[in-house]
């Protein structure tokens, strides 16, 4: 079973994402900010990270930069999932090693389509 770390400061969003991803047979871990997520990744690298941008403590972009420096941190597929929907943010995410990008609001179809893009379904 593939693993996914869902990183979002909203408990509601994490719950929605968890439900969609569990239906797609992912094993889910959750983190409420970038720092929690980094700690989780240091314990065990997930196959994929679904990543919010704006969060307290450490934001999504800073997490991504840090993750890619970690041993084995190049492995997880990182999909941003954020309300930031302008080209500047998307370009910045891609330049820093994001694999895909979801603009909120999202639904099951979008998540599945994006997972197909990165070869995870």
């Amino acid at each position: 079973m593939r693993s996914c770390l869902v990183v979002d400061d909203s408990r509601v969003i994490r719950k929605v994402a968890r439900r969609i991803l569990e239906d797609l047979e992912f094993k889910i871990e959750e983190a409420a900010d970038g720092m929690e997520a980094l700690t989780a990744c240091r314990g065990q690298m997930p196959d994929m990270v679904l990543l919010d941008w704006n969060m307290p403590v450490m934001n999504g972009l800073d997490f991504l930069k840090a993750l890619r420096q970690e041993p084995g941190g190049d492995k997880p597929v990182v999909i941003f999932c954020t309300t930031e929907n302008d080209l500047d943010h998307i370009t910045q995410a891609l330049e820093n090693g994001a694999n895909e990008y979801i603009m909120k609001p999202f639904d099951g179809d979008i998540i599945e389509a994006k997972l197909a893009e990165v070869g995870l379904v």
Partner: peptide, 10 residues
């Protein structure tokens, strides 16, 4: 967001 890779969007 359906079927289009984000790199193509950009």
């Amino acid at each position: 967001q359906r079927g289009l890779p984000v790199t193509s969007l950009v």
